[in-house]
Amino acid sequence: MNNTRRTLVVAVAAAAALATATTAGAQGQDYPSRPIKWIVPYLAGTAPDTTVRITGEALSRILGQPVVIENRGGVAGNIGAQLAAKAPADGYTWVYSGSPMATNMRMYRKPGFDVMKDFIHVGRITQSDSVIVVQSDSGITNVKELVEHLRKSPGKMAYASGGVGTPSHMGAELLLAATGTKALHVPYKGASESTNAVAGKQVDFAIALISPTLPHIQGGKLRPLAVLSPARNPRLDQVPTLAEAGVPGISLVSFGGLALPKGTPAPVVQEVRDALTKALATPEVREKLEANGAAVVPSTPEEFAQSLRAEIALTEKLMKVANIEAQ
């Protein structure tokens, strides 16, 4: 009797394993069979939104199904990330993941998700530089003059950011700490809004991703003072790095890519991974992404995950330097 029972248990387990493998294989073969939703945890018009729309269009053609972009901004990207983390792990919900989501692991006591545990990070898409901008008619023409204005009016000048914990917030606080100055922080819902705030003279300056600032710079409303990167940006090659402008030791680069909810079947993950690799190898896609001031930097899933871990560690270090407490 015992032998019979053991044989039955083994047979049932084998059948279950076969059914699981067969289902996973079928999911990979049939995927995708309907539209895919790609959550962008930021407002429309921001650099991540532009990146996703360009990449999503190419992925739609490759996968043969519409990739529908859904902007769910708020709380520095936490709201959209929370929604994605709770979505069904069937491959039909994606999320734009990147350095801000990693930063939020330290900037917020309760972000509502875990960037390393709740997602499968498929691969990086782009890497973007940030730039310090002021109003063109502000009378400030370089970083030295900005610092002089800040010192003359401690705490009276205001700067905009895309939200607490974003690279724009972190960068500004590091600049203030490095120069021994103070300014009022005015957080907005995203980089496009913070950039518009400077152009509209609601605040005095901002550190924002290059993408949303370019139209204002080219239109003559904003003046770029310096980029916060190791080297000059090709789209703003006449603008010095912050180190060249006299404030060394501050370099912030924002990056982003594609992630899926944890538990998504491996065949589906591989299908998405292959499609992303093909999309980013397309000259037309690369040209459009780079036209917005970003650098196309594809990666393996492992490399992308490691860059997120490194960002969490860097954020913890920078928060101490800039004396920023978790929200």
Rank of each mutant, 00 (worst) to 15 (best):
I217H: 05
A14S: 08
E148M: 01
L83Y: 07
H121K: 14
S97D: 06
G180N: 07
A11D: 07
E311Y: 09
A13Y: 15
A310M: 09
V272E: 07
R109F: 04
I36M: 03
G246I: 06
M157R: 06
L146A: 02
P267N: 05
T241D: 14
P167C: 02
V143I: 11
L214P: 07
S128L: 09
Q65D: 04
V143D: 00
L228Q: 06
R6N: 12
H121T: 10
R34L: 01
H169F: 13
L276P: 00
I62N: 05
Y42G: 08
A24W: 10
V321L: 14
A226F: 08
L236Y: 00
K201F: 05
A102M: 02
T181S: 11
A58L: 10
I69L: 11
P283L: 00
A183G: 09
Q82A: 10
T50G: 06
Y31N: 02
W94N: 00
G162Q: 05
T7I: 08
L260H: 08
R72C: 04
V12L: 15
M105R: 10
G77Q: 04
V186M: 09
A208Y: 09
V10A: 15
H121N: 13
G91E: 00
A178F: 03
A206C: 12
A191E: 09
E244W: 02
E271A: 13
D237K: 11
G246P: 01
R53Y: 12
P187G: 13
D237I: 04
D204I: 05
K86F: 02
I36G: 03
L314D: 13
H149I: 00
D137N: 15
P234N: 03
A191T: 13
V147L: 03
A191G: 13
A26C: 04
S254K: 01
L314N: 10
G139H: 08
N233G: 08
A199N: 03
P187F: 03
G219K: 08
L150N: 00
P32H: 06
L18V: 15
P261M: 06
Y108D: 09
A206Y: 06
Q218C: 02
A13T: 10
G139I: 15
L252M: 12
S251F: 08
R124H: 06
K189G: 13
P187R: 06
E173K: 02
Q327P: 10
L242N: 10
L83N: 01
P100Q: 01
K189T: 01
V253D: 11
G249W: 11
M1W: 11
A15G: 13
K320T: 11
A177L: 06
V131Y: 11
L260G: 00
Q327G: 09
A275Y: 14
A266H: 03
A281R: 07
S153L: 12
S161V: 05
K110N: 11
Q306H: 07
I140W: 06
I207K: 04
L228W: 12
T300V: 07
G64D: 05
G80F: 03
T55L: 12
A266D: 05
A24M: 09
P215T: 04
L314A: 15
R124V: 01
E290N: 00
T103E: 15
L146F: 00
